[in-house]
Amino acid sequence: MSDRAEWLDQRLAAAGLRRTGEITCPHDRPWGTVHTAPTTGGPVWLKAPGTGTVFEVALYELLPRVAPDHALRPIAVDVDRGWVLLPDGGTTLGDAGTDLVAGLVTVLPQYAALQRDLAAHTGALLSYGVADMRPETMPARFDEAVAAVTAGPEVRALRGTYAKWCARLAASPVPASIDHNDLHPRNVFLDGDRARFYDWGDAVVAHPFASMLVTAAVVRARLGVGQDDPAVRRVRDAYLEVWSDLAPPRELVAELELACWVGKVARALIWDRALREQGHDQAREFADAPRQHLAALLADGWSDLTEGE
């Protein structure tokens, strides 16, 4: 920790800040470690992603340039060491006491706008090491996931159908972009009506609509409703409105559902990657997550997942 503490103090000094208390470690997971400390400018957060998610550090250089209104501006970034120092983002949507659906209706159009801005930067995202989960790559990714979790025959039998889904998405007028891949209310800071999105360690380059897989699953779990409930449709439609110039509403809805079906494989693979990080006892807690996400391909609906936030 001494190297990180020294770096943190140096970066604070360069920003005109000073640490006023001890550094603590509230999060230590297979996919990354987070330290926090009080300073003269408020709490700060030093994130050290794991080897599979170190791309997040470079991402924090890109996001403030491309989407400055919707990303935290880091105090310091060290791509070589894989560290990023962030200011405190304030209150998350999950902790704000805001009505969940109303809050998502406010923030999801902003997230979609961020995705549209980032669509022109997929080459940079891939060069950072963000996983390539674009539709044309996903049949091979399906094979990778099936092998990684030793999937049963029912899942394996979906291979042909899954490839057809991917081909349909690959022909879409909706461009590939970033998919946060864990877009739930506690990964969104809310300042008035302005949303800022963070914790990008699960992010992939994919059909952007796959982002709604986790969001819809959280809404359903929180409200205890089905995927055709008006609350889920309201959240979905608020997100899709930003894409309405690209296709008629009915086609966008169908494409969103298809992207979420395809995105279940990406979720399985990202969990598998996280659990391959070494030296973390916490990995046992989540050991079955990759298999559960892949098994969600056998569920009844596009937004069915075994876990939300």
Rank of each mutant, 00 (worst) to 15 (best):
T122Q: 05
L125D: 03
S127N: 12
S127C: 10
S127G: 14
G129P: 13
G129D: 11
G129K: 11
V130E: 08
A131D: 10
D132N: 14
M133V: 01
R134I: 03
P135D: 05
P135L: 05
P135W: 10
T137I: 01
M138D: 11
M138I: 07
P139D: 08
P139G: 06
P139N: 08
A140F: 11
R141A: 12
R141N: 08
F142T: 07
F142D: 04
D143E: 15
E144Q: 15
E144R: 14
A145S: 14
A145R: 10
V146K: 04
A147W: 04
A147G: 15
A148E: 15
T150Q: 15
P153Q: 09
V155F: 10
V155Q: 08
L158S: 04
T161L: 12
K164R: 15
K164S: 09
W165Y: 12
C166Q: 07
C166R: 08
A167I: 02
A171K: 11
A171W: 03
S172Y: 06
P173H: 04
P173D: 04
P175S: 02
S177C: 10
D179L: 09
H180S: 10
N181H: 15
N181S: 12
D182V: 07
R186F: 10
V188Q: 01
F189P: 05
L190Y: 06
G192L: 07
D193G: 14
R194K: 11
A195Y: 08
W200Q: 07
A203N: 05
A203E: 03
V204H: 04
V205T: 07
P208F: 00
S211R: 00
L213C: 03
L213H: 02
V214H: 05
V214C: 06
V214P: 01
T215R: 00
V218I: 09
V218P: 05
V218H: 13
V219R: 07
R220T: 05
A221S: 15
A221T: 13
R222Y: 03
G224H: 13
V225H: 01
Q227W: 13
D228G: 11
P230N: 05
P230L: 04
P230V: 02
A231R: 12
V232N: 06
R233W: 10
R233D: 13
R233K: 10
V235C: 01
V235K: 00
D237P: 03
L240D: 04
E241P: 00
E241T: 12
E241L: 08
V242I: 08
W243Y: 15
W243K: 00
A247S: 14
A247Y: 08
P248V: 04
R250V: 09
L252I: 06
E255N: 00
L256R: 01
